[in-house]
């Protein structure tokens, strides 16, 4: 077992260390794979640490499966190792994060990057709307947790539901869960709004495009969520009252 573990480790290359997990590239049964390993956080009480790690690994796999069932692009899950808190999943080829994509556009055409980003905002809105209409809450919607994967030209998926040759892939469902309440969906949108506006200043117009297409993607019931979002924004302001 030890030798096998060592051999496997040799093949794993650390790509990135996030806040709670290490992301490796490697292989699973001969296929290129991404391995997400949640590691223990030394600052946390051991009981709390264990419970959060198990809870989030499960939550992540469940939410990914739910999204795939309703046709939202997420990496396919190959295997889950609960002992080592690892998820083996599909390596999304030729991808960049939405965050990088927006930053690149801001650099290359700063004058009208907002209008250039409109199709992306539409796609984000529609995708999150569809996800919420099936009661899946992501829990950490930021532009770092959305990938744009370049589609092969003339490939089977080209055209149709794509965005200038890219498809939008949602990742990092560690805080995800299933919930039908408008409150939870509203908070999910609020998290997205805050992350979007703090990371990409002066893009308020884009967020309203996201909301418009959220309504379209969601269908009936979207108005309740948007009303909740307004309510949560008011709550958000309240906390600055006392210092």
């Amino acid at each position: 077992m030890a030798a096998e573990g060592a051999a496997e480790r040799d093949q794993m290359v650390l790509l990135k260390q996030g806040a709670e997990a290490k992301i490796y590239s490697g292989t699973f049964m001969g296929r290129p794979a991404i391995i997400k390993e949640r590691f223990s956080k030394a600052y946390r009480h051991p009981d709390l640490d264990k419970s959060l790690t198990v809870q989030r690994t499960k939550a992540e796999v469940r939410s990914i499966m739910r999204c795939r069932m309703i046709g939202i692009c997420t990496p396919a899950v190959y295997f889950v190792d609960m002992e080592r808190h690892r998820i083996y999943m599909e390596h999304v080829a030729a991808s960049i994060t939405v965050r990088e994509y927006i930053a690149d556009l801001e650099r290359s055409c700063s004058a009208n990057h907002v209008s250039a980003l409109r199709p992306l905002a539409e796609k984000i809105g529609a995708t999150v709307g569809l996800m919420h209409s099936h009661n899946v809450i992501h829990g950490d919607l930021t532009t770092s947790n959305m990938l744009l994967s370049r589609l092969p030209k003339d490939g089977p998926d080209a055209g149709g539901d794509t965005l200038d040759g890219y498809r939008l892939v949602l990742i990092d469902f560690g805080l995800g869960y299933k919930e039908g309440l408008a409150e939870d969906k509203g908070v999910d949108l609020y998290v997205l709004e805050r992350a979007f506006l703090s990371t990409h200043p002066n893009t308020e117009a884009l967020f309203s495009v996201i909301l418009e297409h959220y309504k379209l993607g969601y269908g009936k019931g979207a108005a309740d969520v948007i009303n909740k979002l307004e309510e949560i924004r008011m709550r958000g302001r309240k906390r600055t009252m006392v210092g």
């Binding site: 908070v187 609020y190 805050r194 992350a195 703090s198 200043p201 949560i232 709550r235 958000g236 906390r239 600055t240 009252m241 006392v242 210092g243």
Partner: peptide, 25 residues
């Protein structure tokens, strides 16, 4: 503090709030 809970980072002439409490501090 007693009334505030915020995670803040500076960018483009503002202290931007990345995270905060959504109810009490």
């Amino acid at each position: 503090s007693g009334g505030n809970t915020q995670v803040i980072s500076y960018s483009q002439r503002r202290y931007r709030i990345f995270g905060e409490t959504i109810d009490i501090a």
